[in-house]
Every structure is written in structure tokens, then in C-alpha cells.
Design a protein around this nucleic acid. Structure first.
Length: 234
DNA sequence: AAATCGTACAACCGCTATAGT
DNA sequence: CACTATAGCGGTTGTACGATT
């Protein structure tokens, strides 16, 4: 008949924690330590289930938590770890003392994922999205403009064209090469890596400036060799 | 000023892993 | 070995709040 629920929900409080509840939980744990979460709410005088108490403690009340915004450096590291570990948030979080898996997962889902999508990198595979328009750009029109968080952008027709042509596609490609893999030109500082700077300059709009200002160097994130190995440029 | 929309994040749900009996 | 209890994990939802209309 399956597992019993972690707790009997009848009569138990749910939803946001109050300062009073927080205080009760903190003082109980500091005085008694953590032994059995199931017993914690009873002993601490809380109308919560043990699971809720554990989550509240680990994600919010733990004294060793590092509160505050996730830095660019941390974000960079998260992306790298995600590319090798996938959605194993607890593993990723273990590299960031004071950060919780929930915090990193939320940050990934609300910010990093969107930035990657904006730059046409599949957040799941970390490969370039080359054969389709990103869904969030496509509002039913083939030439839908990139939009950030529902706001219209300053990306002009030409800039948008650049985004889809000169950055990824060889300038002299024929029309039936539309669905083929872009070539990465081997010149200058972009010789062996995905040239983020040229892409950034092509997308030199307020929105993309904001994006790049808080985004790690792409050369480091997605080196050309990796893209080839993962099949993006094959 | 009010209504609506979008975002960020806390919290919950359900499943799996592991320890204990 | 089988079963149960508990902790941990990842996906998803709910909601507060700021921005926009």
C-alpha cells in the first residue's frame, strides 16, 4: 500500500514560516541538536511536520548559510558543474559552502537557464541550439525578436540578423545550408574557441549588455573543442 | 491609483536511498 | 532477507513583491 506519509498532515500548519516559528526551531536545535526530524516539531512545540522543519532549517535557518546574491564567479562555477553533473543540485551545492541545493536550483531555473536560452545554449545539454529558434523568441512569428522577461528589446532587424547569421553561419552559406552546423571562423583571438566577444558586440544592446555584464566568459565556458566533442559543431 | 503581469524564491510533494530492526 | 522509518533529493507550485500598463 505504499509508504506512509512522512507525517500526518491533519492539523499541521503549512505555508510560510513566522518569525516565532523560526525562533522556536532555532532555539530547539541549538539546544538539542538534530536527532530525529520527526520528533523535532513535537519537542519544539511547532505545528509543522518534521520534513517541513528540516527544510526550513537546511534552506533558511542554518547559521552557516551564506545569504546574499550569487556572484558571477559562483554562477560561472555552477554552469561548469552543471555541465558535468547535470541536475544533481546537492552535488553542485556541495562545492559552495553556505549555499543550499534549493538556492542553486532556484538560481539556475530563474536566471542562468534564461541567460543560456537567450544565447541559444541548451541549458540541459550545454550545446548550442542551432537547428531551431529558441521557443521563448518564437511567439508564433518566424522573425520573432528575442525578448527578455516579456520586455521588448532594442535588438534591431540588423542586429537580430547578425545573431542568426554572421555569428553562427558562414557569411557565404547557401540557403539550403540553413539547417547545417555553423562554422567557427579561425581567426585572431577566436582561433580555437567560441568567440563570445564578437557575439557580444553583435548583440550590443542594452539588454544584452545587461546580460553579458553578469555573465561569465564564454570562451571559458564553451571552448570550441568541447563543442566539437559534444557534437554541436559536427 | 488600481489592475495586471512577471520574477524570484520559499515551501511542498513525491520519489529514492539508506539505516535500523 | 524483508520490511519500515527516516533523510535526502529534485521537480514543481504558491505567493510576495516590484514593474508595467
Amino acid at each position: 500500500m505504499g509508504r506512509r506519509p512522512c507525517c500526518d498532515n491533519s492539523g499541521l500548519k503549512r505555508g510560510p514560516w513566522t518569525a516565532e516559528e523560526d525562533q522556536k526551531l532555532i532555539s530547539f536545535i541549538l539546544n538539542n541538536g538534530i536527532h530525529r526530524w520527526r520528533l523535532v516539531p513535537k519537542l519544539a512545540g511547532l505545528m509543522r511536520c518534521g520534513k517541513s522543519c528540516r527544510l526550513r532549517w537546511t534552506n533558511y535557518l542554518r547559521p552557516d548559510l551564506k545569504r546574499g546574491a550569487i556572484s558571477e564567479e559562483e554562477e560561472n562555477q555552477i554552469i561548469q558543474l552543471h555541465s558535468s553533473l547535470g541536475n544533481r543540485w546537492s552535488k553542485i551545492a556541495s562545492h559552495f559552502p553556505g549555499r543550499t541545493d534549493n538556492e542553486i536550483k532556484n538560481h539556475w531555473n530563474t536566471r542562468i537557464k534564461k541567460k543560456l536560452e537567450l544565447l541559444r545554449v541548451d541549458p540541459a545539454t550545454h550545446q548550442l541550439i542551432i537547428n531551431q529558434q529558441p521557443e521563448r523568441y518564437d511567439h508564433g512569428h518566424a522573425d520573432a525578436r528575442p525578448q527578455a522577461e516579456g520586455k521588448s528589446t532594442d535588438v534591431s532587424e540588423d542586429e537580430f540578423g547578425l545573431m542568426h547569421s554572421s555569428i553562427w553561419m558562414p557569411s557565404d552559406r547557401s540557403s539550403n545550408e540553413e539547417e547545417t552546423i555553423p562554422q567557427v571562423k579561425s581567426s585572431g583571438s577566436c582561433s580555437s574557441s567560441f568567440c563570445a566577444s564578437s557575439m557580444a558586440s553583435a548583440l550590443d544592446t542594452e539588454e544584452t549588455k545587461l546580460c553579458y555584464d553578469s555573465f561569465p566568459p564564454w570562451e571559458a565556458m564553451y571552448p570550441f573543442e568541447d563543442l566539437v566533442l559534444h557534437g554541436s559543431l559536427l
